[in-house]
């Protein structure tokens, strides 16, 4: 028995004969196997993503302490978030600051490196792999721990500052004036994946455009602003959207570096960290669910805004 016939048979089992008109039956016979192959993903999507998401939507209207059954409280959680939660405001501030700082810096850095690579470096694949590495490691616990060591009072950063400049640096990660910026640097350091995408985008730009500009006497800077950047806007757009969503969802570095407290003085209290504290630290799963849905709305709004604004600044060559 071939795979095909098993699939068709199972398809038949799901769609009993007689109830299905001929056309639909034929369509099913044609697409059934495809759905069968999609099944693992579909099960994952409905069971592990959509189901829990809907459950959390319900829980966001309840008081739920994880142990006893949830109590319906209507919109009380949302009202509290909007009117009487200073920690929500603090978390919002930290998260927005992080997004606003880390995304543009990371994209600029990624583009810079991509342009350097695009000039035809010897051994490019090796460099590309090396520079991509931090993106793979960045979200890991080990790197967050390493960051803690780098930016602690007697960490490597201060050692270098002391040896080279005679400056006695503070404990960067545990000083509320600097702690968030160490996390921004951590994020910028993980520039690998936007860099790879930029590199691919740069490769797409026809070289004859640069040649023509060269002949017309355009400087390198002018070529960058008038050719590279406009033609790269679809890639910039894509990277910006993906990185913004990622930045809103940042969790691991802050969790490890502040040991889940968001400290010192809530200076690294990322939104997701606050949500986590409420849910698992203080047994307020209903409230945390409401927080989660607000984050969903914020990210959706940002993404929608990006797409709406795209027609004013993103140039597709068609």
């Amino acid at each position: 028995m071939t795979m095909q016939s098993v699939a068709t048979d199972l398809g038949g089992a799901n769609a009993p004969a007689g109830a299905v008109p001929g056309a639909a039956r034929r369509a099913w016979a044609r697409n059934g196997p495809a759905y069968l192959f999609l099944l693992p993903w579909l099960i994952g999507f409905f069971g592990l993503t959509l189901g829990p998401a809907l459950a959390s939507l319900y829980l966001s209207f309840t008081n739920y302490d994880l142990i006893r059954s949830p109590d319906w409280v209507g919109a009380a959680n949302y009202v509290r978030i909007a009117t009487a939660d200073p920690k929500f405001a603090a978390a919002m501030k930290v998260t927005f600051l992080y997004v606003v700082l880390s995304v543009p810096l990371k994209l600029a850095f990624a583009l810079l490196v991509a342009m350097a690579f695009n000039r035809g470096l010897k051994g490019l694949p090796v460099y590309r792999a090396i520079f991509y590495l931090p993106s793979l490691l960045g979200a890991s616990v080990a790197i967050a721990v390493l960051w803690r060591q780098l930016f602690a009072s007697d960490g490597l950063v201060n050692m270098v500052l002391w040896q080279l400049f005679g400056i006695e640096g503070p404990s960067w990660i545990s000083n509320p004036n600097y702690s968030l910026y160490t996390l921004v640097i951590l994020s910028v350091w993980q520039f690998g994946s936007p860099m790879i995408i930029f590199l691919a985008g740069l490769r797409q730009i026809p070289t004859d455009m640069y040649e023509a500009a060269e002949i017309d006497g355009a400087s390198k800077a002018r070529q960058f602003w008038k050719i590279t950047l406009p033609l790269l806007t679809p890639v910039i757009f894509f990277n910006a959207v993906i990185q913004t969503i990622d930045a809103f969802k940042a969790f691991t570095p802050a969790f490890i570096i502040s040991e889940g407290t968001g400290g010192p003085i809530n200076s690294t209290l990322f939104y997701t960290l606050y949500l986590y504290q409420e849910a698992f630290g203080f047994f307020r799963m209903g409230y945390a669910s409401a927080l989660a849905w607000i984050l969903v709305v914020i990210i959706a709004a940002f993404t929608a805004f990006s797409f709406l604004s795209a027609k004013y600044w993103v140039h597709y060559d068609d």
């Binding site: 602690a152 990660i173 545990s174 000083n175 040991e259 010192p264």
Partner: peptide, 8 residues
């Protein structure tokens, strides 16, 4: 304070 803040 920045040393104390390292205490978890």
């Amino acid at each position: 304070p920045d040393i104390q803040a390292l205490d978890q």
